[in-house]
Amino acid sequence: MSGSANEGVVVDPMIREEDPQRLAEFEAKMARGDLIEADDWMPKAYRDAMLRMAEHHANSEIVGALPEGEWITRAPSLRRKLALTAKVQDEVGHGQMLYRVSQDLGKSRDDMLRDLITGKTKYHNCFNYPVPTWADIAMIQWLIDGAAIMNQKTLADGAYGPYVRTMKRINMEEAFHFRSGEDMVLTLMSGTPLQRGMCQEAFDRWWGPALMFFGPPDKPGAEHLPPMRWRMKTVKNDELRRRFVNRFAPAAIDLGLRIHVVEKDGHGSVIAKRPDERAVRDAATGDWGYTEPDWNEFFRVIRGHGPCNAERLALRRFSYEQGHWVQQAVLGRRAGLPPAA
């Protein structure tokens, strides 16, 4: 599972202060589809926005390891236990690689981890939802990793070289997450009534967050605004969402899952649901319909009032504080070594 970096993309109007000649060269490079490397000239606004985006993505990987991590001790077979551990471990690895990209843009990892746990920076919204059953693990790896892959494939077509390279390597690992998710969902839906019921309930919990995964509806003219003009993002939110629904809605229905519009309480539990009547294929466009997720809920969760925001940050904070002594003990070792011959 991985973060959509969309929410991290904000560019302020400071580009007006840049040297017009260099800015024009930069914009021309962007228009040509060239890649930017860490030492190339770039507008400060681009550097700042790229840092925010990579940092947000890294934060999302690190926090994204927590919800699924809850089930490592309870995985129902040795293979699933191994796979879930490896999957969560991969997410930590993604975070590590993305923090590196961010560090080269000018912020230390330690500062980023501290800003994350004190709430100064954000991570992806979907990790603020609860994971009450094993079937949620299956659903997260199918729907959320599936959504992450669709998003990250387009991010790998971006313009910032270090981020693009990292995204390519990350995607190679994501393939395992998605296959393992499919395998679990397929196994549960081929299983006992209890297993199929668990799977449907988990689907009801995760379909909404999966639709929200790509971020809120695009602003008009998004393709001309810096995030897309500078290829930090290459495809619009609504277009990604359309592709996602076209892929997953019919697959879910064929599996025997029913698509519901749900109402959740403050703990993220489903308290009411009804069939989503829009979840049908439009014969004219070929697109599958869906009911828009609750965007008020989305912004409420972003502001820190989701079901698990406090829990995730508390655990991340504990991890940082309890491990502080380890890093402290080995800091600056190399600097203290005698110079090489």
């Binding site: 991590g69 809850e70 089930w71 490592i72 001790t73 309870r74 560090q103 230390s108 990892r109 330690d110 500062d111 501290r114 746990i117 004190t118 709430g119 406090a310 940050l313 508390a314 655990l315 904070r317 504990f318 940082y320 504080e321 502080h324 890093q327 402290q328 800091l331 600056g332």
Partner: peptide
């Protein structure tokens, strides 16, 4: 999971107990 259920919690509003350190 027992560990994740029982980790000691700090007041989220309190400043971090540890000082910043380098990488």
């Amino acid at each position: 999971s027992r560990i994740r259920d029982h980790f000691p919690r700090t007041d989220p509003a309190a400043p971090l107990a540890s000082a910043p350190m380098g990488d």
